[in-house]
């Protein structure tokens, strides 16, 4: 594997909430994505995946930690110095209902990145190719529509097209295919896979473990602002060590209606980052919690095969 493109080191992100204080949505996350690699970030909703990606784009309030892009520290760069980096580092936003300007036609949304970065030659052609690559064919059918005139999956593909129009070197994809059906999804992921082979680095945030299992090299599992397990895909899926990962895998629905499997549905509310439990942050919901878990905060430690780590001493 080559040099890491994007490195996130010990990232802490705090959102101000009310007058009272700060919510630590991300609390000490480290990960790295190399050129030509796809890393999947999975985890409960609200655990800080989007915040991590946005912080990597310098769009969330970073309290501490480092973001490095191609080895250069960009944690404190001003917006002018960030501009060239923002051409190479693209973010596909999670919610295509919110992230497309309702007053922009498809054409304008996809052209916008090209205009911002002053790419003048063959704008129209680039825009069309991006739409085609994202599976919106023929582009003419969509160019003059507003977002509200598109289906959910079509909006998502417009987002993808806008991100690909600049031919980025690093892609942060926040649930890029959540609204796409299996065949379109396979097409988009196949495209990302091809681009990846040409050197694109991808950090893919997804809830879909089956997708992560098929396309990612590595999987990082997040829980309440921390990475609790990470490793090569086959390891994490085939030999999950952290009880949270195990539970997560057990509830992935199966295609056969007669085979329900043994889902281990965790009870209790989604944990609140404003109120992090002491000790292991998973202990109130952990099916195998021990006394020590209430007080000792476990760190990522090697578990199983090489490169596989989990934050649970009983893993």
């Amino acid at each position: 594997m080559s040099e890491p493109l994007l490195e996130i080191e010990d990232l802490v992100v705090g959102y101000r909430q009310g007058r009272k204080g700060v919510v630590q949505a991300v609390d000490g996350v480290s990960l790295a994505v190399a050129a030509g690699a796809m890393v999947a970030l999975v985890g409960e909703s609200g655990c800080g995946k989007t915040t991590t990606a946005q912080a990597a784009m310098r769009m969330a309030p970073i309290a501490s930690g480092r973001i490095r892009y191609r080895g250069a520290d960009i944690t404190a760069l001003g917006s002018r110095a960030l501009r060239p980096i923002r051409r190479e580092l693209q973010l596909i936003f999670q919610d295509p209902y919110e992230s497309l300007d309702p007053r922009f036609r498809v054409r304008d949304t996809v052209l916008e990145p090209l205009q911002i970065h002053g790419i003048a030659d063959d704008r129209e052609g680039r825009m069309r190719r991006a739409l085609e690559r994202a599976g919106l064919t023929p582009p003419e059918l969509y160019l003059d529509r507003y977002p509200h005139e598109l289906s959910g999956g079509q909006r998502q593909r417009v987002s993808i097209a806008a991100a690909l129009a600049l031919e980025p070197t690093m892609l942060l994809a926040d649930e890029p295919v959540s609204m796409l059906d299996v065949s379109v999804r396979a097409g988009i992921l196949g495209l990302l896979d091809d681009l990846r082979r040409d050197g694109l680095g991808v950090l893919m945030i997804t809830h879909d473990l089956s997708t992560a299992a098929r396309y990612a090299d590595r999987i990082c599992v997040m829980y309440l602002g921390r990475i609790v397990e990470e490793g090569p895909t086959a390891e994490v899926i085939g030999d999950p060590r952290h009880p949270y990962t195990q539970a997560l895998l057990s509830v992935v629905p199966r295609p056969d209606p007669d085979d329900a499997g043994e889902p281990r549905i965790l009870r209790g509310e989604t944990p609140n980052p404003a109120d992090v439990p002491t000790g292991c942050r998973f202990h109130p919901r952990c099916p195998v919690a021990q006394d020590r878990c209430r007080t000792d905060d476990p760190v990522l430690a090697p578990a199983g095969a090489a490169g596989h780590r989990a934050a649970c001493p009983y893993a």
Binding site: Q90, F93, Q94, E98, S99, L100, E112, H117
Partner: peptide
């Protein structure tokens, strides 16, 4: 705070734009 404004920021658009 809307995501589409954030998206423009992420693209490196100037404040004026």
């Amino acid at each position: 705070e809307r995501a589409y404004v954030k998206r423009a920021q992420a693209l490196g658009a100037s404040h004026l734009r």
